[in-house]
Design a binder for these strands. Structure first.
Lengths: 165, 165
DNA sequence: GGTGTGACTATGGCCAGCCTAAGTCAGCAG
DNA sequence: CTGCTGACTTAGGCTGGCCATAGTCACACC
């Protein structure tokens, strides 16, 4: 059987002796690790912009929606801006920033998994141009689509990190 | 600017009138929506198999690790099985099932986002064959890599659902 | 100037998830 | 048969996320 584990390389290899303390998954979850945060983002992708709509469509209370939206705004995933329809008074709308929009693959991956393993939902994502189903997949910058077993976890050295920064 | 929203199609179009009650994201989060669950899965991908190692490397207490691992086993993401090293007594190991392994793109997407927006971590994922960086990306079965704006959310009709089941 | 609406805030309470500290239990090692 | 180790469980307590209910405040409309 396949092992479904990543290969640890170089200084990471004896797993003993290092911790994933600064793990980017953990840090991401610190911002969007609640059910309500991720579902609010889902709604934003669905095009929802107004406060009461978010609360209702996500199925959370308004106090929670307010708190969570504020966090998402504070962390830069969503922006809150006034807008005005003609003849209407000024209102607030919430829209995804570039930073928020880039979380989409994560949501799609969760959606895809739920659909596959917990039974299909009533909706699906399709590519407008070709009509085919859309999911999230692993891809390297070389253009391949590797399996989990084909991945190495490698330590970034200081120089590489500096060059990237 | 780009809108970063999906286009709702057909009966979904007036967003008013339907709810994402059965949303696969929500259902997935019911199983793995806690920080500890996702970090335990991360550790499993890193190759951790033993109880105490999970607790220590994730940075959670043993009672929580026990509860969360049991949930993951009950839901079929991880399997718990006895194993024996020569001259040692029987112990338990935890390993990813196919179902658990398929959550990997979601974890990679979260990792990638944290790395990009919260500062680079000390490790990175690379494709063993070509050495390039690996991330999670949208891809349709037609082989394209669409942007968020190029996606349609479409309602599955009964026939299609039946045919897929 | 009263009414309605949108976007919140305030209060109080419940429960899940987390912690520490300590206990259990089985099996191999001495 | 005592001790140790691995895999847990039990007990007690804290905090954060959630809820419902109710209140606030600004503004357009009538």
């Amino acid at each position: 059987m396949t092992e479904s584990t990543i290969r640890l390389t170089g200084p990471l290899d004896p797993r003993t002796g290092w911790t994933a303390a600064n793990c980017p998954i953990g840090r991401t979850l610190d911002l969007v690790g609640t059910r309500s945060a991720l579902l609010l983002l889902r709604e934003a992708f669905y095009g929802t912009t107004r406060f009461a709509d978010f609360a209702e469509r996500v199925g959370i209370s308004e106090p929670v929606a307010a708190a969570r939206l504020r966090e998402l705004v504070d962390h830069g995933l969503i922006e809150r801006e006034p807008y005005q329809e003609p003849g209407q008074r000024t209102r607030m709308q919430y829209r995804l920033t570039q930073q928020g929009a880039e979380l989409f693959p994560a949501l799609v991956a969760l959606m895809q998994w739920g659909d596959r393993w917990l039974g299909p939902a009533g909706v699906e994502l399709r590519h407008r141009d070709c009509g085919e189903l859309v999911g999230a997949e692993l891809r390297c910058t070389g253009g391949h689509h590797p399996a989990v077993e084909d991945l190495d976890l490698v330590a970034r050295d200081r120089r590489t990190q500096a060059a990237h920064a």
